[in-house]
Computed example of a mutant assay.
Amino acid sequence: MSFANTDDGVRLFYETAGSGTPIIFVHEFGGSHWSWEPQLNYFSRRHHCITFAARGYQPSDVPAEVEKYSQKRAADDVVAVLDAAGIDRAHVVGLSMGGFAALHVALQHPDRVLSVLAAGTGYGAEKQFEGYFKGISEQVAKNFAERGSEEFGAVYAEGASRVQFQNKDPRGWRLFADRLRRHDALGAANTMRGVQMQRPSLYDLEHEFRALDVPVLVMTGDEDDHCIQPGIFLKRVIPRCGFAVLPKSGHTLNLEEPEMFNRMAAEFIAQVEAGRWGARDSRADPSQIMRTD
């Protein structure tokens, strides 16, 4: 087993597969390093793939203090794993919580990033729902801490943007739900309180995003309602950003629609590596409907 050591003394489990241009996969709250198996199987044929368990997710360390968890720390942890794996720069692919981390890696450590794919990224970002999101996140944290992952994980796995996965692929969803029910309850509660509840809204980072010179692809499901408007926002403010919407899809995109996810991600990475993922053409004026002269 391979572990990265962070500057605050936390060990992070990681594994690698394949060779070629590096891709690091950053998991969501409901997943872990195992969430990316369909992507490792596909991309390791021509890329050096890395996946890891975030702090709070075994076999990584589970710090007892909530102060050990934050959005900045989540981004720094991605870099710690890259350092441990001997990688200078990588494509960073993240889902949900991992998508937020991927974007923050690009903002905090742009020299370590070849590109960012942020999927299912937006929960808690909408300004009108900030208070609601913090309140519901505290309730989720409390449920994990008091009821345990075995009981509450089953409830969490049937959220409004998870049932699409359940309906399309009951067997795949069941594996996801069973693994979620084995999460460390303290790690889940601390992650929810330290990372999810405290991270800044994407809208509060508009200035930083407008200055970001990194190729970005934002991907969302059309039934992942609270990620759609934040995705459109990111498309409008990040200069080199594309926006992909998967039809009849929810939150767990890489597992729910692995073939579509992989195909879009592969095309994005190929265009980045060919130098073809630039900023929007200045002639594509969003205020123009039709040209008249």
Rank of each mutant, 00 (worst) to 15 (best):
Arg73Pro: 00
Ile87Ser: 04
Ser35Thr: 07
Gly221Gln: 04
Glu37Gln: 15
Val216Phe: 07
Phe176Met: 12
Ser137Tyr: 00
Ser2Ala: 12
Arg55Glu: 00
His109Leu: 10
Tyr42Thr: 13
Ile24Lys: 00
Arg55Met: 01
Asn5His: 11
Gln229Tyr: 11
Glu267Asn: 15
Gly242Met: 13
Pro59Asn: 02
Gln271Phe: 08
Pro63Val: 06
Pro230Arg: 12
Tyr132His: 09
Lys142Ile: 03
Val66Lys: 03
Pro63Asp: 12
Gly275Ile: 12
Arg11Thr: 01
Glu256Phe: 01
Arg240Ile: 06
Leu246His: 10
Arg162Lys: 07
Gln108Lys: 14
Asn167Lys: 13
Glu28Cys: 04
Pro38Val: 07
Thr220Ile: 14
Ile269Thr: 12
Arg181Ala: 07
Val105Ala: 08
Leu246Arg: 10
Asn143Glu: 11
Val237Cys: 08
Asp76Trp: 03
Gln58Ser: 09
Phe100Cys: 05
Val79Gly: 01
Glu130Gly: 01
Pro258Cys: 02
Thr191Cys: 13
Gly20Val: 15
Met197Asn: 08
Asp222Ala: 02
Thr16Ala: 12
Gly9Gln: 09
Gly98Arg: 08
Gln58Pro: 07
Ala101Lys: 08
Gly172Cys: 01
Leu12Pro: 01
Val214Ile: 15
Asn167Cys: 03
Met1Asn: 03
Gly275Tyr: 12
Met264Ile: 15
Val272Glu: 07
Asp204Ser: 15
Ala125Ser: 15
Thr6Leu: 02
Ala119His: 07
Thr21Glu: 13
Ala160Arg: 12
Asp281Val: 06
Val218Thr: 09
Lys68Gln: 11
Ala279Pro: 06
Leu12Val: 00
Trp173Ser: 04
Ser201Met: 10
Asn143Phe: 05
Ile238Val: 14
Ser137Asp: 00
Glu208Phe: 07
Gly9Met: 11
Val216Asp: 05
Ala84Glu: 04
Met264Arg: 14
